[in-house]
Write a protein that binds this DNA or RNA. Structure first.
Lengths: 357, 357
DNA sequence: TTTCAAATTGCAATCGATTGCCCAGATTTA
DNA sequence: TAAATCTGGGCAATCGATTGCAATTTGAAA
């Protein structure tokens, strides 16, 4: 008899492997009270006797009870979850921003659902819809390079979900935004190059449908203007935002009849790295013959030889700022949401690749 | 009258900002049918007339309906969500693994909830509990350096949730695991050093409570043994797993009466980077006077000068493997879960920092 | 001793989607 | 023509937790 019981038990536990969890009803039944009281006790309500409260909590622990957040959230209409959509999570800048967001939200007991759009408009839409379906309380997004319309983001707002854009933002949408002052940073970088005596500065620019890259270009142009330097079209190379593209662009630039003496890889440090590799290959002295400036302050820029001048975006801090922005907005939730823009000033980090003086 | 109506409307929409979304009941009411049919239609059930199905889908789109996944999941007892816990999401290795997991799970319509333990046992427990509460279908974890017991993981299993450990695993727990063959990789790296003629090889080792680091040490010892080389205690430095600690360890090693001629930074490339910086500072020729080998194949190892020999862990592939493991296990879910271990063989990448021959 | 308020606890509805069961009408088969 | 089978769709329970509204008990004030 006993062995049969055991066998049944084994079958039972296996079949039930992904089934029965302890609920408040189990606790209630065991203690001969109602689920209401259990719920109240577990939420530390004052409407439960201290003694029974303690008993309930103890029993819950004994039965290994775990609250079903789905049910709880469904009832409460609030998930304490924030969705994050970034082009790529394994890109330094984004993973740091996420780490920053996470640090702050975690303290407030919020969860993060992280999605990556892989720079695809289509996937971005899917991500956003998933997050809406999940009833997240807020969506934080940096749009993909491929994103050309913003219906999906408008949709977020229509569903009454908070929306915070960062870094790569859609200007036309009235949402909260946390951005870098790309124009200013870019301006300063180019001024720095000029002050170092570089006279012919090329620009590697990113996809111009993204605001961030447009701004960086403007900064570049403004700096040239300030110093009355000519704008040379052949010195401006489009879409050079990976290491490979940066390298290719550099080869092109260095085969021009009129050579540039500095290259501002406004797109990324990876691009700047491509520039450096080509320069090293061709035995062109950096910074003497060619100045190089990147963007983002990736870890490796410090340790290449020569080390690369770049721009720090304070990515981690940016993440924290985003999270705080959300929580601030939460607190005065009775008023209408006012689109707020926070601009973080990036910092030029001067290193060997541009230090001639 | 109209203006008053308008005002009411504005107030209404503002107050309702985070409230009323379209539900299947709204659709049902509008079409004068029941919610059942709406649900069936939206799930593409065959028990609905094609014509009405189309009508329902059209109406749903018009009303901007979004399924409430909370309700759906609660009812179905399945969330199609996988929770991932890693020490740090902004660490290259982990963010790549996550990217890999995400790529595969996304195709299957699964979501990811990502948490970081920040190398803290306490926070790891909280993360795991949150994920359990969220009723994720599976938890993927790489344990923190600080984790000394595994009750929280046992708990995951007790709740009937799939658990997959990767990289840093708790051996004693019978779960599925995806790991690197650290011992073998480490062994090969040290053999390579020996074959390059290095005779006194130091080891920078990581926290020995983590399996991965223990294995790497074993690989190191085995290689020495194979070549009949003595084990010199002062050549083995504990807990040197950041750039700074690597640098400090190197200074210590280089001040010994008996100098090592190679350093295997088995903990990370960052550590190796610290070694390299100190060597460069002291004008010690790498690889002639000092060989350096790192671990992880971080992007920067390729571009330091000299470039650093290291070990590629195929992190992205590892992520995909993890995801596939889960889905395989899903398919034959009637059988008992058999703890399965997948070991991925890392690859030694030989670069300048160890190339003497 | 009576009255009233506070402290506890129970009842039942609710959140939104899903699904087993049942039924009416339509269609097919015998 | 009657019986059998399909189709399409409604009813109502369910998932687990929360919460407004009683109902009951207790204790204190009058």
């Amino acid at each position: 008899m006993q062995s049969i019981a055991q066998i049944y038990f084994i079958i039972f536990t296996n079949i039930m492997k992904r089934k029965k969890r302890t609920t408040i009803y189990d606790i209630a039944e065991k203690l001969n009270i109602t689920a209401s009281s259990v719920s109240r006790a577990l939420n530390d309500s004052s409407h439960v006797n201290e003694t029974t409260k303690k008993l309930i909590i103890k029993t819950a622990a004994e039965l290994n009870y775990k609250r079903n957040t789905l049910a709880s959230n469904l009832r409460k209409g609030q998930t304490k979850t924030i969705g994050v959509v970034v082009p790529r999570i394994n890109q330094n800048f984004f993973s740091n921003v996420i780490a920053g967001i996470e640090e702050t939200t975690y303290q407030k007991g919020y969860n993060l659902i992280i999605c990556q759009s892989n720079e695809s408009h289509e996937k971005e839409i899917k991500c956003v819809n998933t997050l809406i379906n999940q009833h997240v309380d807020c969506i934080v997004i940096s749009i993909s390079v491929d994103t050309y319309d913003f219906k999906h983001l408008q949709n977020v707002l229509d569903q009454g979900i908070q929306l915070i854009q960062f870094d790569r933002v859609a200007d036309e949408l009235e949402t909260m935004k946390v951005i870098n002052d790309n124009e200013q940073a870019s301006f300063e970088a180019v001024c720095h190059l000029i002050e170092q005596g570089y006279k012919k500065i090329a620009l590697l620019e990113g996809p111009q449908n993204l605001d961030v890259f447009r701004q960086r270009k403007i900064g570049y142009l403004n700096a040239l203007k300030k110093y009355d330097m000519p704008i040379i079209d052949s010195f401006i190379i489009e879409n050079a935002w990976t290491k490979e593209l940066g390298a290719a662009a550099t080869r092109k630039l260095l085969s021009l009849p009129d050579l540039p003496d500095a290259i501002f890889a406004s797109t990324s440090d990876f691009s700047a790295l491509g520039v450096l590799e080509v320069a090293n290959d061709l035995s062109i002295n950096v910074p003497a013959k060619l100045g190089i400036c990147g963007y983002s302050n990736e870890a490796f820029t410090e340790i290449t030889s020569p080390s690369i001048t770049t721009i720090d975006q304070f990515s981690m801090y940016m993440g924290k700022t985003i999270a705080n922005l959300y929580f601030q907005e939460m607190e005065n939730n009775d008023t209408v949401v006012i689109p707020k823009i926070i601009s973080i000033k990036p910092k030029l980090i001067v290193r060997s690749s541009t230090s001639r003086v």
